[in-house]
């Protein structure tokens, strides 16, 4: 059986691209069209539930507008997806009327939290703001050193405790330091944590509370980092983190790979959390504001 699969998959990868091209160049909309569209969406990690919803919605629109050509359907589908991703939304990050502004960054293990913080820090340093980083990952080996190296590279300050320390204490000190030093922006790194581990979820709630107590109104953004290679588990991640702390936006990382990151469509659909930023590489410059139209274009191949 294995051999069949391997052969099948080699063909898969080659075939999918063709299919995508074919899908919208076909003249007529029929069952095949919808089956192919399902494959496109699911292969991009949009997931069964949201894909089904999108296809039904598209079908309805096409019927209403009496559209029969696939080319036109593509435009309608794009519009529909862009609307779903809040195409018109203002994605600028919230800053406090009076500095410091505090962003809290969280997510499961290895998704790109620390790197995204470095990229954000770099961006705002370029814009002339003073930036402080809080080494809130006191758990992972050399996580503090990792952030420390970035702080040097991007020219941001760093507040750290010892490895194994209490992350809430780190962010508490960092918020106070940010206020005392009149820093514009404080970025709080946290340890990667699976949303299923209740002790770690309690910990992130506490971190959030501590920030709020040290500086009313903070954190001004709570950004959940999702890895574009993540599949359906991304939905659970978003739901559970959202339940623990009010998440204000998603940073979608690793879009420079071949994964299309369709999970954020499901996340938006099912939790309402908007994508604000995307990571497109490992370097400090590789961060962009999420562009729904571009994203949808890439999603559809």
């Amino acid at each position: 059986m294995l051999k069949i699969f391997k052969e099948g998959l080699r063909r898969t990868r080659e075939a999918l691209q063709d299919r995508l091209d074919q899908l919208f160049s076909k003249n007529e909309i029929n069952d095949d069209f919808f089956a192919d569209l399902e494959e496109v969406l699911i292969s991009a990690d949009v997931g069964v539930e949201t894909s089904t919803k999108i296809i039904a919605l598209l079908g309805q629109r096409l019927r209403e507008a009496k559209i029969k050509e696939a080319q036109k359907a593509r435009e309608i589908l794009k519009e529909l997806l862009i609307a779903l991703m809040d195409g018109e939304k203002d994605r600028s990050l919230v800053f406090a009327p009076v500095p410091p502004t505090v962003f809290l960054v969280l997510g499961v293990n290895g998704v790109g939290k620390t790197t995204s913080i470095a990229k954000l820090a770099y961006h705002y340093r370029q814009a002339g703001k003073s930036v402080l980083l809080a080494a809130g990952d006191t758990f992972r080996a050399a996580a503090i050193e990792q952030l420390e190296e970035w702080s040097g590279r991007v020219g941001a300050g760093l507040i750290k405790h010892q490895s194994g320390g209490d992350p809430s204490a780190v962010v508490f000190d960092a918020v106070n330091a940010a206020a005392a030093r009149h820093v514009d922006l404080l970025l709080c790194d946290t340890a990667g944590r699976l949303h299923t581990k209740s002790n770690l979820i309690e910990e992130i709630k506490k971190i959030n509370r501590v920030i709020g107590r040290a500086l009313p109104g903070a954190p001004h953004e709570t950004l959940l980092v999702l890895d574009a290679t993540t599949g359906q588990n991304g939905i659970a991640q978003a739901k559970y983190f959202q339940e623990a702390v009010p998440v204000s936006g998603v940073i979608l990382t690793k879009l420079d790979g071949t994964a299309r990151g369709g999970i954020v469509v499901a996340v938006k659909d099912l939790t309402g959390i908007p994508v604000k930023l995307v990571g497109i590489g490992e370097k400090k410059e590789d961060l962009q504001v999420f562009d729904p139209a571009l994203f949808v274009e890439a999603l559809l191949g």
């Binding site: 998959l9 699911i42 990690d45 599949g231």
Partner: peptide, 14 residues
């Protein structure tokens, strides 16, 4: 391989 990987796993592993 991260067990949370989605559809792209075939491309990566392949």
């Amino acid at each position: 391989v991260d067990a949370m990987t989605g559809q792209d796993a075939v491309n990566v592993a392949g």
